[in-house]
Design a binder for these strands. Structure first.
Lengths: 342, 342
DNA sequence: CTGAAAGCGCTTACAG
DNA sequence: CTGAAAGCGCTTACAG
């Protein structure tokens, strides 16, 4: 358990590559190779270096490597929320895709705020990331500029970009909103409300789909939309249900922009003795685990969250490596999951 | 929008501090000061440097700074899960506490695996973290050794350490398990089962508390415990309920080690027509949002998740800064939340 | 297969 | 208040 012999004032007092090299009786360069490209070093020296690494407890200094090699091995991931199960599933997919590649993942939680996104990106840019994974398609001008000037590969997740050359993985949020609304209409519902919260990009696009379907069917009525900027929670769903019930006479169905709201709305119906779906059909979006188990179980849109993260990370890796990219726009689709609630 | 004039082969082709200094007509050292300790630079030069930074779009290189200053400004956080709302709340608290301090947070998801924890820590150690936030008290020998040799300040979250000098923030998991069980006993329940999954450290300690209460009351029966190593999910709760019902005759209450299991168990009861709490009392742990809204609402233990993250981060900061630390062991307590289900 | 030299972009430690 | 020198720990680019 020997320590670095020199005690220079600025140093961390840690074992360096030179210490390892000295201990093994080789040049630092050889020690470096033995560690990073062992196939380029003779078995004998490789063994001596390995032994020195063990004995000294050498830990490579990532900052030094990044500086010398101009390669950070860092990938930045920006998501709007960590409390939303949707994004933790996306992160799981990203982790699984990146795990074998020895990248360091910098996770930033923008909290659905453009300002926060700018701040995080500005900070993370100091780490010279090799690639960036972003949620959504729309970003502030400053973010767009930072991305453009950095020339770092970027993949957008959760929706499909129509910009040529842009890389994106997800599905059409608008189309999914349309599909769910269409389903309710086909079931014979006439007064279909849209309950939305957070009002992020995706919620708005689902609303666009809802509107298109309602207009097509001649059922559109702006009074049927409740758009609330607060974060989506079960409690908010419960509250908004009350508001919709009192403000929208004749309501026979509600399309909630996500499952959290739908769960809250259904719990509220249970407490008020409103029968779902007989009196009121309620459906959600995302197919969270509880949706399959609640009573009534919840009709919703199944979304490829884990897969989105996984594919987006792989697309980014291909781009970083300069590999051929068959498709820069990967549509993972969505599924209409019909259950008891609508 | 001028670029760095030199085009050396190894460089990133990015604007450096020297470029900024040249553009402002000062020495690099002065540019560095103007950016990091502006109060030490005259107003005139400070202004010229600021202008140069703007005009060149300078982004500091974090690796270079870390290497030169021997300070990483990195804090490592290891949590066992990101899909568990408990830990995302802890992370939110950490973020809020660290946000003003310009630290980079490295979030590692150990997936409840010691091997994964070792791997993550080994990787993150390469970044020379200034501090580490760990979940739980027990860690593998290799993890303990890495922490010991690095001499980096560590704060443990989610439970209280009895080791002298160790810093920890949380509450007694054992005590909480005891309290919930005691509550069920006081309510007159006799055959109280314990439904556990994941079987991590905390689940086991809650079980210890359950056992202590049952033994005290002369109600203990090992046949009343169902310990399943699979991850906790609503689906698993629903499944385990079935198993307990068929294997534990006379069961009149179930203490689920967390709310996910409790929700699944209650949904299953609804589907089977079992009345909760009349025929079977069910309670959970953690007080997730749905617990207050479900029907029946869920009796559970409220836990200080956000607060744990917040206080743990602040404790770590104090330790990093060498501030005086009034208490190295911060007990945030827990609350028994009695509702309809038990 | 091995190694001496130079440099990555910044900050420390001095000196003025 | 300002700056010239040296160095952080590693890797690139050569040369042998």
């Amino acid at each position: 358990m020997s320590k670095s012999p020199t005690t220079k004032s600025r140093a961390l007092g840690k074992v360096t590559l030179s210490d390892v090299a000295a201990h093994a009786g080789v040049a630092p360069m050889t020690a470096s190779r033995a560690i990073n490209q062992p196939e380029l070093v003779s078995a004998l020296l490789r063994e001596r270096v390995d032994k020195a690494v063990q004995e000294l407890g050498y830990v490579p200094n990532r900052a030094a490597r990044a500086l010398a090699s101009a390669q950070s091995k860092v990938i930045v991931v920006l998501v709007p929320s960590l409390s939303n199960a949707v994004f933790t599933a996306v992160l799981a997919g990203i982790q699984d895709a990146l795990d074998p590649c020895n990248y360091q993942i910098l996770i930033g939680n923008t909290r659905y705020s453009d300002a926060e996104e700018e701040k995080l990106l500005a900070t993370y840019m100091q780490s010279n990331p090799d690639g960036i994974l972003l949620s959504g398609l729309t970003h502030s001008p400053r973010v767009q500029q930072m991305l453009a000037t950095s020339r770092v590969p970027v993949v957008s997740m959760m929706d499909l970009s129509s910009e040529p050359g842009a890389m994106s993985v997800g599905f059409s949020q608008e189309e999914a909103g349309y599909t769910m609304t269409r389903y309710l209409i086909d079931k014979g519902r006439k007064r279909i409300g849209y309950m939305a919260a957070q009002l992020d990009e995706r919620t708005l696009k689902r609303g666009d789909g809802y509107r298109r379907a309602m207009e097509e069917a001649g059922l559109f009525d702006p009074a049927l939309e409740l758009m609330c900027p607060d974060p989506s929670t079960i409690a908010l769903g419960a509250e908004l249900l009350g508001r919709m019930l009192s403000n929208m006479p004749g309501l026979d169905a509600i399309f909630c922009c996500n499952d959290d709201l739908a769960h809250g709305a259904i719990f509220q119906c249970q407490r008020r003795g409103i029968k779902v779906p007989e009196q009121l059909a309620i459906c959600g979006f995302n197919d969270l685990p509880a949706s399959a188990w609640m009573k009534p179980s919840v009709t919703t849109i199944g979304t490829p969250r884990y897969q989105t993260g996984f594919e987006a990370a792989n697309l980014l890796l291909a781009s970083i490596r300069g590999n051929e990219i068959p498709a820069r726009r990967i549509d993972l689709g969505f599924t209409l999951v019909t259950r008891e609630s609508a």
